[in-house]
Design a protein around this nucleic acid. Structure first.
Length: 683
RNA sequence: GCGCCCGUAGCUCAGUUGGAUAGAGCAGCAGAUUUCUAAUCUGCGGGCCGCAGGUUCGAGUCCUGCCGGGCGUGCCA
């Protein structure tokens, strides 16, 4: 399992071009600019790169898009940028899309879309109910997306949210854009944690408790064994090691303090800094020692645990032996494993059901059991793996630590399983890309894994560690319960829904006439609560850590699920209020006109949906989509404030605006759907 | 020690492969409600983008050094 990133994924521009979907406005403008660039400068000037410098404008006064390529091109050609810009504009054939391009500042080319073009595009999107006019990519790629990957030995917790939610969203977006996706939940069902459960069952198992509620019993065993193993590890290894470290730091500090003070002021400063750093490290070491000591004292004061620990002095090794026996085909352990696995999987499935997350496959680690020995053999045969300190290791250029594929006791590791998984996926699915949505702390593992896989022969596939940061609590430290254990996922969802219900009810109660029945409130609360957790996760840049806050994620203002869902409900309600059936309206031949600036801005925003999706795919960042949706909702609000719809001045204007509402609603709903968030018609 | 990541408004966070005057939400202040759902909207104040150099027509963004924080670093996943 991978639950437990940090380098940003490489920007592989050669993949970007292939991944970009069909002709949205931006892609079209880039193509037009590219053609002009060839005429002005010739094909050898890096046309694609220059054309990529057509970007959406940041300020409406510059039009909708701007081409920034005249400056660098001017540099290359040794001509004034404005002159180059003028030449480009002369050759630029965009009359069907834009007003006459304007040159501004040092050589920006500002492009303002024609109203007729906007309305034509919107009109074309109208009948396309599901895709809102977005055609699939011309050259689909095959993506394997590896996400969630919980450990079956213990309940899912807060650490699984990001992988599950981000992975699911990326899969949906990739698929919608037109790629082939294969989602695979690489469940941890074959590692050391199972040795713990097996050992626990053999010594502390309660048959009756298991019959009554299997998963809590297994969780109890896991926690118990884990505690006992930890006790011995702390007492015999960690604490002595911490003591040694304190001693080392003490002597280092005294050495530094006794050393003569350098005469040179700069050296003096460095010297003082070294001392203060060493002192800081000494304080850290002492604190760590005290913490371990306190842990030990607390444990030894526990009248139930201490005797158990004494009765199982070699539990750490015994657990590993159980794991090794399972891997070696021991009949008893195998039978236990087969007995324990189904209830664990059923429990996990419950959570996925609630989250609305599905997978094409859930090949756990155990699926690759039979392949592991062969993987190591092959690596040996190809000279990639060699023995070192009794283990089989792959030594990689530029890395101090080897990639260990087999332990000295013969057991395999997740490195082995991951390699077997890659081989399997390449053989069966022949993907163009393999995405691992796993937290940033495993970046070293994936660097090694990918490097090894390439050496092994899988060098014609894009490997991506789609890493993400940690979910933090209010204190800025990893989100934990007061007692220091990780927060269970299902409890987290419960609380979000509970709080959402209170908010929904309180709001509805303030109405002169409550709008929602008790049942409806419950449904809304479920969608708002779960949506809040998902959206909060997706709206943050995945590489940064973020603070988990119910209050913030459930807020009705700002970039939250509740606000987005509210926006959708508000748009939708217009149809009910006006007695308008969207399908009939679309078929009625009514046309869209753009008079008010707010209408125009909304129309352009709707057309830019596919650009947002392209950005998500390009960088594997769902927050680009939440940003887009938030902006779209903002544009709608502005439109809603300024442009009466049902009370429009005349019938054609009313219909035009209703069509804009329809497109907005569908875009919002589709966007949220791609993020795994459900909408409601009323809230 | 080495490697990776982060440092943006009082707080929580964005920042489109280097673009024009660095943006949201919250909090603060001032407004809008006989409403198309006010769970909303409008406006104001608030920033040596950690510090110092460098590259560039142009740097929050790229390079170097420093300061501060997080994570990782041979038999867990």
């Amino acid at each position: 399992m991978r639950f437990l990133c940090a380098f940003a994924p490489l920007r592989e521009s050669f993949h970007l071009t292939a991944k970009v979907s069909r002709m949205n406005i931006l892609a079209e403008l880039r193509a037009r600019v590219a053609a002009a660039l060839v005429e002005v400068a010739g094909a050898e000037q890096g046309v694609a790169e220059l054309a990529a410098m057509v970007l959406p404008s940041q300020d409406a006064k510059f039009g909708e898009y701007q081409a920034n390529c005249a400056m660098p091109l001017g540099k290359r050609l040794g001509k004034p940028p404005r002159e180059v810009a003028t030449a480009l504009v002369e050759k630029l054939n965009v009359a069907d899309l834009c007003e006459t391009p304007e040159i501004a500042g040092p050589g920006f080319i500002n492009l303002r879309l024609k109203d007729a073009f906007i309305t034509a595009k919107l009109q074309a999107a109208l009948p396309d109910v599901d895709r809102i006019g977005i055609a699939p990519v011309a050259t689909p790629r095959t993506y394997v997306v590896d996400y969630s990957s919980p450990n079956v030995a213990k309940p899912m917790h807060v650490g699984h949210i990001r992988s599950t939610v981000i992975g699911d969203a990326l899969c949906s977006v990739l698929k919608f854009v037109g790629h082939r996706t294969i989602s695979d939940n690489h469940i941890g069902d074959w590692g050391t944690q199972f040795g713990m459960i097996i050992y626990g069952w053999k010594h502390f198992g309660d048959e009756a408790a298991f019959a009554k509620a299997p998963v809590p019993e297994l969780t109890r065993l896991y926690r118990l064994v884990n505690t006992l193993v930890e006790y011995h590890a702390v007492r015999d290894e960690a604490l002595p090691a911490a003591a040694t470290k304190v001693g080392e730091q003490e002597s280092r500090v005294s050495q530094l303090e006794l050393a003569p003070t350098p005469a040179d002021p700069a050296e003096q400063k460095k010297h003082a800094k070294r001392i203060s750093q060493a002192q800081g490290q000494l304080a850290d070491a002492r604190r760590e020692y005290k913490e371990l000591e306190a842990k030990l004292t607390e444990f030894e004061g526990d009248s139930k645990l201490k005797p158990l620990a004494d009765a199982h002095p070699t539990i750490g090794q015994a657990v590993l032996a159980e794991t090794a026996a399972l891997h070696a085909g021991d009949a008893t352990n195998r039978a236990l494993w087969e007995r324990f696995l189904p209830p664990c999987l059923a429990e996990i499935e419950e959570t996925y059901k609630r989250l609305g997350v599905t997978f094409d496959h859930a090949f756990g680690e155990s699926f690759y059991e039979d392949d592991l020995a062969g993987v190591v053999e092959d690596l040996k045969k190809k000279g990639l793996a060699k023995p070192s300190d009794g283990a089989m290791c792959v030594f990689l250029a530029g890395q101090d630590a080897p990639f260990i594929v087999q332990k000295k006791d013969g057991a395999f590791l997740y490195a082995t399983t991951d390699l077997a998984t890659i081989a399997y996926r390449m053989r069966e699915w022949k993907p163009d890309a393999m995405l691992y949505v796993v937290d940033h702390r495993q970046s070293f593992h994936f660097d090694s894994l990918f490097a090894t896989a390439r050496l092994w022969g899988f060098d014609n596939v894009e490997f991506q560690h789609v890493s993400f940061g940690t979910v933090l609590g209010d204190d800025g430290k990893p989100f934990k319960t007061r007692s220091g254990s990780s927060v269970g996922l299902s409890g987290l969802l419960d609380e979000a829904v509970e709080r959402a219900l209170a908010i929904v009810s309180a709001n509805d109660d303030t109405r002169p006439e409550p709008m929602l029945s008790t049942d409806e409130r419950q449904i809304v609360a479920e969608r708002v609560g779960i949506g809040a957790i998902k959206y909060a996760d997706l709206a943050h840049n995945r590489t940064s850590d973020y603070k988990f806050s119910y209050d913030k994620m459930l807020a009705m203002t700002g970039n939250t699920a509740a606000y987005m869902q509210y926006s959708y409900a508000r748009v939708s309600s217009i149809f009910g209020k006006g007695g308008v059936d969207p399908a009939q309206l679309r078929a009625s031949g009514a046309t869209i006109t753009l008079d008010h600036p707010a209408e125009r801005a909304l129309g352009v925003a709707i057309l830019q949906f596919s650009e947002a999706l392209d950005r998500v795919v390009g960088d594997y960042r769902p927050n680009y989509l939440t940003d887009y949706l938030y902006e779209l909702a903002g544009k709608y609000s502005s439109f809603f404030e300024n442009c009466p719809v049902l009370k429009a001045e005349n019938e054609s204007l009313r219909k035009s605006r209703l069509l804009l509402c329809d497109l907005t609603a569908r875009t919002l709903a589709r966007g949220l759907d791609l993020l795994g968030i459900e909408v409601v018609e009323r809230m």
